[in-house]
Nucleic acid binder design. Structure first.
Length: 756
DNA sequence: GCGGAGAAAGTTTTT
DNA sequence: CTTTCTCCGC
């Protein structure tokens, strides 16, 4: 039974647990993933369950696929029939099968945060209320909170009838829900809520999943919300015996309260599931004693926690290094300089370093510093690839063809590219649709009854011609072929290609990347329907996409994205009150829960470090172009000085003056940084200051033809060798191996490449 | 209906 | 400081 080897006593006890509910409190770096995978492997290996009978829920898709891989490796068997995924992806699976019960079509569209916001904006406009009074973001989060607490619009309106603002939000909420339904769309919250509704309303469906899933496992249980908790409870319920529910989590790492996660789910587990077992993993295998003690000292200040203290048998290690700085530029410079210096040491790589920050906006200054010193880096997250406008435009066509009732997608593309259909024509269409309770797309089929301006009328007819043609291709083509057809026939291709500005070219790059992502998806998934692809795109987290191209680069990411990761050396930047903890966690006088969540966030950040931890702050920072002074973060002050390499107050003013002087004269124009980096775009050692000239000099081969073995030069990816050329329809696609970027499939006519 | 100029808002964190 | 919104002239 080799897979059980190497577990410590507690880990072993958890891994061989059989029936009944169990809570494993697993501190940072205590081997949580190992326990989960071994437990699943053990269930299968001892014949207690087949892979088919196991449901494992993880926090990210990446964690899911890693878990599957590890189990397959441990047991040397196929685990394809096992359900491993995030709550959201598992709910999509349930809904595709069962959502008919609730009166939706199974080809429903998933709305992401942007779509939600746009819909809310549209509704606020329609209601003609004072837009200043109802900021879409605030309305969105209120609606989300209400949905997750299962408060209906009517209920909310009735309970708050006397309060205008609340009542109006209720009205917006009501319209929002109605619009989602008639668009045959679900937002992220709905995926969970509607899945739960399906199960509650349909005993047969419930019975099916309960019979099937003999064992249910949930990772990161501290970050489950109300609906997820109810789902788990519902699914894991067994008729005459306790639930076989295995949850793993760490109350000290609960950092998603703002998204509805309820820490009491983990704190109350033992009350919710009677006679449950509790195992604590407190031996840490990741960090040095100094780092661990510092983290323990900080988290101890939280009142709401189960209480545990991590220990290690590792040595003390070096002291935590405090980096005091005058401003954010200097902070960036200090970090870059430290990495540059340290990475020259033996057995030290750039990839050993991570720079963590509280907000995405901090990344820019740090980038500047790294570029200046020629330190290569990658950014995780930030602007999401699929969130880019050009990608969303193409996606909107796909979505509309798949779900013609989706008015939001319709509105996005009806006049893109320009078809002379403006606000006036649209309001006429909308009016007709409202009266006839039809979708906008359907309304287009009754043009005789709508008195559109001539030009707009023609535009709509043109649009319908395009969509009809594409509807035919949808059923006839492979996914990637179909999306290519959408791109071309819609006129988007022409539109994007005729834009020769620098931004336009980078947009083309993104589109190229999009097409190669489609090819990847098609190869990796045996069943690749359009629905599958659309769901895949919507549910992809940006931390999921970090394809492990073995590139030796520094990682930049938010603390939230860093959860679950580890690095030899970690920088936590921006340790200032007002930034970390965020100014917004201060607002409730009697409630420290937000400040406690920020403290947990600090705890998560600190425990990412294996060997070296650097804590940095700036006394002054640019916010909206204004200088803002701040004080050292309270969390930094909570660390006993014995673990720090210097006293806090003294360090900043003089020690850093010299590096500040140097930092000052590296005026780097931020406009030069505005390359739209992707997750895998790696910035090389030599800063590409001449980038602008690069793009101007680069001219694409218009009539290029390639054969296997040709050497080509790509605008962004450099030199590569053609591995194969494929002729599909009138397009030829070339698979090209690039020296540092891996193998990509490109559409020859489109790609910014030339033959060498 | 479209594009440009100028005003206003925006930065927590993300499935 | 940057991105998004709004208004106005063509």
């Amino acid at each position: 039974m080799s897979y059980l080897d190497g577990l410590n006593e507690k880990q072993h006890e958890a891994a061989i647990h059989d029936k009944g509910p169990i809570l494993v409190i697993a501190g940072a770096g205590t081997g949580k993933t190992k326990v989960l995978t071994t437990r699943i492997a053990n269930l299968i290996d001892t014949g207690k369950a087949s892979p088919y009978e196991i449901l494992a829920i993880t926090f990210t898709n990446k964690a899911a696929s890693e878990m599957k891989d590890r189990i397959a490796k441990l047991l040397q068997t196929e685990v394809d029939r096992m359900w491993v995924g995030t709550f959201h992806s598992i709910c999509v699976k349930i809904l595709r099968k069962n959502i008919g019960i609730l009166g939706y079509d199974q080809n429903f569209t998933i709305y992401d945060t942007d779509d939600q916001k746009n819909l809310i904006k549209k509704i606020i406009k329609e209601l003609a209320v004072d837009t200043k009074r109802f900021p879409p973001n605030m309305v969105k989060s209120t609606i989300s909170k209400l949905k997750n607490s299962e408060v209906s619009p009517d209920e909310y309106i009735n309970n708050n009838y006397a309060f205008y603002d609340k009542r109006m939000i209720g009205e917006i909420y009501a319209k929002y829900e109605k619009a989602l339904k008639s668009n045959n769309s679900l937002d992220f919250d709905d995926l969970l809520i509607k899945a739960l509704d399906c199960l509650r309303m349909n005993d047969e469906a419930t019975k099916y999943y309960r019979d099937r899933f003999k064992y249910v496992l949930v990772d990161e249980y501290q970050d489950t919300n109300n609906i997820q908790y109810k789902l788990v409870k519902h699914l894991a319920k067994r008729t005459n015996e306790p639930s076989n529910l295995f949850v793993v989590g760490d109350d000290d790492q609960s950092i998603y309260g703002w998204r509805g996660a309820d820490i009491s789910n983990i704190l109350n587990f033992e009350n919710d599931f009677k006679n449950s077992k509790l195992i604590r993993l407190e031996r840490n295998y990741r960090s040095t004693e100094t780092i661990l003690n510092a983290a323990n000292a900080v988290i101890k200040n939280n009142a709401t926690r189960k209480g545990k203290e991590l220990y290690t048998e590792d040595n003390k290690g070096s002291l935590i290094k405090v980096l005091g700085n005058n401003n954010e530029k200097e902070e960036a410079y200090t970090i870059a300089q430290t990495i540059s210096y340290e990475s020259n040491k033996i057995d030290t790589n750039y990839s050993d370093f991570a720079v963590l920050y509280r907000t995405n906006s901090q990344s820019r200054a740090i980038e500047e510093g790294l570029i200046k010193l020629g330190v290569p880096y990658k950014i995780v997250g930030g602007l999401k690839f699929y969130g880019r406008k050009e990608i969303k435009d193409i996606m909107a066509y796909l979505i509309l063809l798949q779900n013609p009732r989706d008015d939001m997608s319709f509105l996005r593309i009806i006049n893109l590219p320009r078809r002379k259909i403006g606000p006036k024509a649209l309001s006429l269409l909308q009016e007709y649709a409202n009266i006839n309770e039809s979708s906008l797309f359907e309304a287009c089929y009754n043009l005789d009854e709508i008195d559109l301006p001539k030009a707009a009328h023609k535009g709509v007819v043109d649009f319908l011609q395009i969509t009809e043609l594409l509807m035919v291709k949808k059923d006839a083509c492979e996914l990637s072929e179909f999306i290519t057809a959408v791109y071309e026939d819609s006129g988007l291709k022409n539109m994007f290609e005729s834009d020769e500005t620098v931004e336009g070219l980078s947009r083309l790059d993104n589109i190229m990347e999009f097409f190669s992502a489609i090819t990847d998806f098609q190869e990796m998934n045996t069943n690749h329907s359009i629905d599958d692809f659309l769901a895949h795109v919507s549910l992809l987290a940006d931390t999921d996409k970090t394809k492990n191209i073995n590139s030796d680069v520094v990682t930049l990411l938010t603390i939230h994205s860093a959860k679950g990761l580890e690095f030899n050396s970690v920088f936590i930047s921006g340790l200032e009150d007002g930034l970390f903890p965020s100014i917004r966690s201060n607002d409730d006088d009697n409630d420290d829960s937000k400040l406690e969540e920020e403290r947990r966030l600090f705890y998560v950040a600190a425990t990412r470090a294996k060997k070296n931890l650097y804590l940095s702050y700036a006394e002054e920072r640019m916010v909206f172009g204004q200088h803002r002074a701040s004080k050292i973060s309270r969390y930094l002050k909570e660390i006993p000085t014995e673990f720090l390499d210097k006293e806090l107050e003294v360090s900043s003013s003089h020690a850093s003056t010299s590096s500040y002087a140097r930092a000052k004269n590296y005026g780097y124009k931020s406009s030069e940084l505005k390359t739209t980096y992707m997750d895998e775009t790696i910035h090389r050692r030599k800063p590409k200051v001449e980038k602008k000239d690069d793009t101007e000099v680069f001219t694409r081969d218009e009539n290029i033809s390639l054969t296997t073995g040709d050497k080509v030069l790509h605008k962004a990816w450099g030199e590569g060798t053609v591995v194969s050329v494929l002729q599909t329809g009138d397009k030829s696609k070339a698979t090209i191996a690039f020296e540092n970027k891996g193998v990509k499939t490109l559409i020859v006519e489109l790609a910014p490449i030339k033959k060498l």
